[in-house]
Design a binder for these strands. Structure first.
Lengths: 190, 190
DNA sequence: CTAGAATCGGACTAGCGAATCCGCTTTCGA
DNA sequence: TCGAAAGCGGATTCGCTAGTCCGATTCTAG
C-alpha cells in the first residue's frame, strides 16, 4: 500500500524533470524517436545522468512523453458536448484526435517494438480516450449520423490510418480537408 | 555509358543472391526491419560476407526487397482493364495496392530515415505505380465515380493511411471490408 | 550559516550490430 | 583435368548508444 510513497522532489529536480519532458517531446517530434539520449539531455541543458535518474530507461522517457500527449487529447475530448449534438461531437472528436496525433504512430511503434503494451500508465491513458470515443461513436450512431455496423476497433484503426494519411499531407491543409471530407462522408450511413 | 557493364554472375553467386532476397523479404516481414543482418544471412544459409558482397549495405538490401515488391504490385496493377470499366478498375487497384502493401510502411520509414528518397531504382518503381494510379483515378473521375477534387497526392496519402489502418485489423477480414466500404463510399462524389 | 542529504554532470563501461578482410573453396573455360 | 578467377564464410574491427558510477555541487532544514 505504501510502496510508491513519494516525497516531494527537490526544487531543482522537479524543474529538471519538467524540462526534460518538454524537451524530449519536442526533440522526438523533430528528429524522430531514434535520437540518442544524450542529445535530449544536452538540449535540456542537463547531463545524461540526470536524465536517467528521472527516467530509468529511454523507453520510460518515451512512455512518459506519450502518456502526457494522450492525457492532453483525453482532456480536450472530454470537453466536447456529447449530449447536445452527438454527430458534431463525434466528428469533432475524430478530427481532434487525428490532428493532435501527428507523429504519434512512430512512438507507438517504438514502444510496441520494446514490448511495452502492458504498461499500466499507457493503458490507462489510452483507455480513457477509447472510452470517450466509444461513447461518442454510440451517440452518433443513435443519431443516425454514422454507419451502425462500425465498432470501436474499426474506429481506432481508422483514426490511426487517418493520422498516417495526414502526416503525408503535412504541408497542404486544403488536401487534408479533402481527406476529412472523404472519411466523414464515408462514415455516414449509405 | 559502359560503366554498369555487368558480366553474368557465377551460378552459385546468382543462387545465393536470389536466396538472400527471398529470405530477407520473409524475415523483414516476420521480424521487422530491425533484424540483425547476420540473422538474415543465417536464415539464407550463407555468411554475412556473402550478404554484404551482394548488397553493400543493409539499406541496399532493404531497398532491393522493396523494389521487388513495388514491381510486383505494378505488374498486377497493369493487368487491370482500365478502359472497359473505369470505376471498377480504380477501386480494384486501390484494393490491390492496400492489400499488397502490408508491412510496407515500416520499410518506407526505415529507408526515409536513412535518406534514401533519391535512389533511382526506388523512384522508378514507385513512379510506375503512381502513373498507373493517376491514370485510373482520372478514368474513374471522368466516369463520375470519384470526387473530381481529389488529386494523386491525396490518393497516395490515402493509400498509405489505408494500409496502416488495415495493419491494425490484421485478424478481422470482415472489419477490413467495412473499412473499404467507408473509404470507397467516401471517395464517391456526394 | 552550516551540515548533510539530495541531486547533478559527464567520463566511462558494456554490448550490439554493421561492415571489413583474408585464407579457403568452388566454379568453369580451355 | 587443371589453374586461375570468382566467390565464400565468419572471426574481427569499429562506431555508436543505452545505462552506470562517483566526486563535485546545490539545496534546505534547523
Amino acid at each position: 500500500m505504501s510502496g510508491t510513497q513519494e516525497r516531494p522532489l527537490r526544487a531543482d529536480a522537479a524543474r529538471n524533470r519538467a524540462r526534460l519532458l518538454d524537451t524530449a517531446t519536442q526533440v522526438f517530434a523533430t528528429r524522430g524517436v531514434g535520437v540518442p539520449t544524450e542529445e535530449i539531455a544536452r538540449a535540456a541543458g542537463v547531463g545524461v545522468g540526470t536524465l536517467f535518474r528521472h527516467f530509468p530507461t529511454k523507453e520510460a522517457l518515451l512512455e512518459a512523453v506519450m502518456v502526457r500527449k494522450l492525457e492532453t487529447i483525453a482532456t480536450q475530448a472530454a470537453q466536447l458536448p456529447a449530449e447536445s449534438a452527438p454527430a458534431e461531437a463525434f466528428f469533432d472528436c475524430f478530427r481532434l484526435v487525428v490532428e493532435q496525433s501527428a507523429g504519434k504512430n512512430e512512438f507507438a511503434q517504438a514502444l510496441a517494438a520494446a514490448g511495452v503494451d502492458a504498461h499500466a500508465t499507457l493503458r490507462d491513458a489510452s483507455a480513457a480516450i477509447r472510452a470517450q470515443l466509444t461513447e461518442l461513436l454510440a451517440g452518433a450512431q443513435r443519431a443516425g449520423a454514422v454507419r451502425p455496423e462500425l465498432g470501436p476497433p474499426e474506429l481506432v484503426a481508422l483514426l490511426i490510418g487517418a493520422t498516417t494519411t495526414m502526416e503525408h499531407l503535412e504541408d497542404d491543409a486544403a488536401a487534408r480537408e479533402r481527406i476529412f471530407a472523404v472519411l466523414f462522408d464515408g462514415l455516414r450511413p449509405r
